[in-house]
Nucleic acid binder design. Structure first.
Lengths: 190, 190
DNA sequence: GTCTATAACCAGATAGAC
DNA sequence: GTCTATCTGGTTATAGAC
């Protein structure tokens, strides 16, 4: 598979997909080379520092995918309420029944490695901050103060990370659905 | 260490502590026996089904610890707003600088194993539902409808799970602080 | 007989040589 | 791109201590 991808991209794509499903420690390099079809020699050619370096590339790849997804949803929304509700509702469909199984974009990796790999922890931290910056911008545009915007961005990011975790654990889109339904009330007062 | 604990309890306590910090796959049985001082033979005496069985016991142990923590905070709070804000604020202190390093109670384990171990996934799912039941009860007592109470319970649980993840990743209590500060606004309208 | 201690097992890991 | 080295994973076997 991945015949059309260059070896390096095939490695990143496969790694990011498997890490989402089983976490960093749960995926072996053998799994990645088997699924990507890229030989082990090539892996160490493109990623001489090994698994950590491949994981960092996979995290940055996932970061970009998520950014594009968020921006697409946000482009069509006129206010933060619509934007977030639509986004979480879309997540609930993606993690619900039917469709390809998805994992946590990078949350599991962050939870596993925050004490063991400073490199990966920093990659996750920077990814989280980039996502939050997009959220904060949406609040700023709507007239919220800078301080409120960043706090709300953190809060909504936490909501999505936690919601995805609950969806995966219960194998159901319902937790994210419940969260999406609450969002109008959560933002009603401001 | 753990001289005063019985071997079985020492294993559960050590396992739950290490799993919180490094996840399920990231902790080897060798780490657990080394830190607990319990020999490998005893481990398989008390947990004949091995690592999965020990992990399930560790999850249930952590579940109980968290339940007691929640109930203690909730007992002193007259309304859900105070209850949740106090709880999240307490989390922010626990995950902030100083003090023992903490990990995600079971969130990382859930993220790692949802596709690989149905046994552990179900233990995590049941733990999450038990915690949410306590949250929902607090809302019910305050006069919220049954449906709103369960939805709000899911939402606040997601907030805590996501907030803890952000705290660990950034090695800071600030994300949880920001969330705690937003809670009055999130619940203001009802 | 319950529990402990240690040693051996083999599959799998990452890594790297050829 | 294959093939090997080295090490660690979880597991099991067996012998001894209480």
């Amino acid at each position: 598979m991945d015949k059309k991808l260059k070896p390096k991209d095939a490695l990143i794509e496969t790694a990011s997909r498997l890490f989402k499903l089983r976490g960093y420690c749960g995926v072996g390099l053998n799994d990645i080379i088997a699924e990507s079809g890229v030989p082990k020699g090539s892996l160490y050619h493109y990623f001489p520092e090994g698994k950590e370096q491949l994981a960092t590339a996979a995290i940055n790849y996932t970061k970009q995918l998520v950014i594009e997804d968020i921006q697409q949803v946000f482009a069509d929304a006129s206010n933060p309420l619509d934007a977030f509700q639509t986004y979480v509702y879309e997540l609930s469909k993606a993690f619900g029944e039917g469709g390809d199984p998805l994992g946590s974009p990078i949350g599991t990796i962050a939870g596993e490695t925050h004490t063991t790999s400073e490199t990966i922890r920093l990659a996750c931290d920077s990814t989280f901050k980039d996502w939050q910056a997009i959220y904060a911008e949406k609040f700023l545009e709507a007239g919220y103060s800078a301080q409120d915007s960043t706090s709300l961005a953190v809060t909504f990011h936490a909501l999505t990370e936690g919601g995805i975790l609950l969806a995966l654990t219960s194998k159901s889109g319902k937790p994210l659905e419940a969260i999406a339904n609450q969002i109008p009330f959560l933002l009603a007062q401001k």
